[in-house]
């Protein structure tokens, strides 16, 4: 198994729900990063049974809103000089901007260039968000 401590500098996204690692990889566009990125799927976890994990060997600014939407239970570990320097727990964002699209076919955002749309969390359990323009509900994926 990959050892987090061996990372010299970078980020480890840990405790990803099994099967969601690839979603995170794609939504964060990690394929575009020139430095090594490792995605591990279905690895053993004492707490979760099985989990996914992503190791990024560089310091990049992650889009926490996207991460929170896909899997709010992940842990972000920041590593520098081979040591864990910061640990961050995520939560479902109350507001997301420029990530979700409105699924209401009658919403103006599907006809005019409205720029980034704000969506507001209305139901944490079901991850339901409300469109700032038409108030319709939408979910991520």
């Amino acid at each position: 198994m990959l050892n987090v401590d061996k990372l010299k500098k970078g980020i480890v996204i840990d405790h990803i729900e099994e099967g969601k690692g690839m979603d995170i990889y794609q939504e964060l566009h990690l394929n575009d990063i020139e430095m090594p990125v490792v995605l591990m799927k279905g690895i053993h976890s004492e707490k979760m049974g099985k989990k996914d994990l992503i190791k990024i060997e560089t310091d990049i600014k992650l889009n926490m809103d996207i991460l929170g939407l896909i899997d709010p239970d992940v842990t972000i570990n920041y590593v520098s000089d081979g040591k864990l320097v910061r640990k961050e727990k995520l939560q479902l964002p109350e507001k997301v901007t420029g990530i979700l699209k409105c699924h209401n076919p009658r919403c103006i955002s599907n006809y005019e260039d409205v720029g980034d749309i704000d969506f507001y969390l209305v139901n944490k359990d079901k991850k339901i968000y409300r469109c700032e323009y038409c108030d319709s509900y939408t979910t991520f994926h």
Partner: peptide
């Protein structure tokens, strides 16, 4: 007045 929802906000 507009047929698309959210137009006035925009």
């Amino acid at each position: 007045r507009h047929p698309r929802e959210g137009t006035a906000k925009l």
